[in-house]
């Protein structure tokens, strides 16, 4: 019985090792990628399916009891902001909204919708920082669901025809606010 040459055995082992390595690579890399993808969660990278579509209509009451319907505001751009008193970026973006509401006045309608918060807290917030527009109550969070809200603040820029043109997650930058509204006007 002839003994296999050491060179042949060594090279076949190396070939086998390469195969095992390749299979391991093909299996492990996608697995790690998929796990990393499924466990990482950044809502800022989730594109809203509502972009370019008509904004879901609603009729909600504000803190003073006035009913406001989105469809009744057709003809002027609307900035719809879902916010809460417990949300830090909402405090950050508050001056941006206040300044924009003062700057654009009747040209643009600014609407706030309370997201998972209580009226007394919202009223206290408005007393402390000032309200930049009507604050709407969303019973049962139905408006938040209709707009696919992941967490406050989320802001929708709706054009004159009632179509959603931009969704901003987290605090709105003052420059983005102005550039977007100038484009919508």
């Amino acid at each position: 019985m002839s003994k296999p040459s050491k060179k042949t055995v060594g090279s076949s082992k190396r070939r086998l090792n390469r195969w095992v390595l390749a299979i391991g690579f093909i299996v492990i890399v996608p697995t790690v990628f998929l796990f990393a993808k499924s466990f990482s969660f950044d809502k800022e990278f989730i594109e809203s399916p509502l972009l370019g579509k008509p904004a879901p209509d609603f009729t909600l009451t504000d803190l003073d009891g006035n009913a406001i319907s989105l469809s009744s505001l057709r003809g002027k751009p609307v900035v719809l902001n879902f916010w809460a008193s417990y949300c830090a970026p909402c405090v950050t973006e508050h001056p941006t909204f206040t300044a924009a509401a003062e700057f654009y006045q009747d040209q643009v309608q600014f609407l706030g919708v309370i997201y998972q918060d209580t009226e007394p807290r919202i009223e206290a917030f408005n007393q402390q920082f000032g309200a930049w527009g009507p604050t709407l109550i969303d019973p049962g969070g139905k408006a938040a669901i209709a707009y696919g809200i992941y967490g406050p603040p989320e802001t929708f820029f709706i054009d004159r025809e009632g179509v959603i043109r931009l969704k901003v997650i987290s605090a709105v930058h003052p420059r983005l606010m102005k550039e977007t509204l100038d484009a919508l006007l």
């Binding site: 609603f58 009451t61 009913a67």
Partner: peptide, 13 residues
């Protein structure tokens, strides 16, 4: 019913 324009609520598409 839930989405009545004019009444309070949200229009679900």
């Amino acid at each position: 019913q839930d989405a009545a324009p004019g009444g309070l609520g949200v229009v679900r598409q």
